[in-house]
Amino acid sequence: MRVSRTALIGLPILIALPLIVHLLFGGSEKYYLHLLIQILIWSFIYTGWSLMGRFGLTSLGHGAFTGIGAYATVLLWNYAGLTPWLGVPVAMVIAVVVALLVGYPCFHMRITGHYFALLTLALTEFIRLCIVGLRDYTGGSLGTQPRRYGDGVSLYAMQFEPDRVLSYYIVLTLWLVGLYIWWRVDRSMDRFALDAASQDEEAAASVGINVTREKLKVTAISAAMCALGGAIYGQYQMYIGPDTIAGLSVSLNIVFACIAGGLWVMLGPTVGAVFTQVLSEVLRVSMQSSVTLQALFGSAVLALDTLIYGLLLILFIIYMPKGILGALLEKREKTSSAPTPPSRAVLR
């Protein structure tokens, strides 16, 4: 099986990566580890989103779930002294409840396509506005920080940011859990039910598939994953802001990265995260160091990465709707004769 062969080679490399980074980039290893950690956290979040997205449930509401995860965890810690070990599960439960509250009517009333996207966009806005509105607790649009506990690395407070290597292994585990969930869903009967439903809901219902229940199941898992990802992001960054971990930009970034990487393959969202994070880092660094660009645009040069990012997204959707990994695998499978991944579902 392809996946396991990749895993056999890939996993040891990933585990040894901090050492490799240390040997290669001794001086700036913190920076490279930071980049890797970011990629892994976002990969986990994107993988969570793609659980829904691959079945045509294009949610723009996942910025709400990451926001709930991050903010609920931090607020419970800061104001109730609740350890994130309890706070994170509570945040995940809140996210799942919100997801079900919005998902049930959506699926029951068969809201799909544009309507689903715009409705979930409203959820994102609603949560963002609540976060900003509760400024006495959340710091409003400026964001807030988890209260430091001890010297910064603490099991009880789930704070690990100063130790980059530890952080790396934590998020690597998280990411592997994400892939495992993806794999389990992909192998389950639910996946076939959802595939059927995304192609023809009426037909799926007529052969006895409880479409609403199947969709709710995958929505709950997806929301919980995004909340967990958001919470870990907050704990690692030690800062949360309504625009960095919640809101429309986050939602759009999630969707785009998944599309860029490829929705229908397990590592697609991860490839999307690598692509988008590395792209924006490379652009950012090269712009900061480029005297010409700085002279030309001043501090506005920082927007150039978003500009190129937007442009690439447009090109991706027009010319490569299956994403980088999806397109690569398709190319490979045309030459070999392995079965093609189920890819028509959302494209229709």
């Binding site: 045509g56 294009t58 396509g113 544009h114 996207a117 759009l252 969707v255 785009f256 599309i259 645009f297 001043g298 501090s299 506005a300 040069v301 920082l302 927007a303 150039l304 990465d305 978003t306 500009l307 990012y309 937007g310 442009l311 690439l312 997204l313 447009i314 991706f316 959707i317 027009i318 709707p321 959302v346 494209l347 229709r348």
Partner: peptide, 28 residues
């Protein structure tokens, strides 16, 4: 002729593009 959602998202790319272009051209 693509999926409706791709049409919606492609204009999302335009959103990022225009915002960034405005930032670069006119500042924040």
């Amino acid at each position: 002729d693509s999926a409706p959602i791709n049409q919606l998202l492609v204009t999302g790319g335009v959103l990022f593009f225009l915002q960034a272009a405005a930032t670069m051209a006119f500042g924040v």
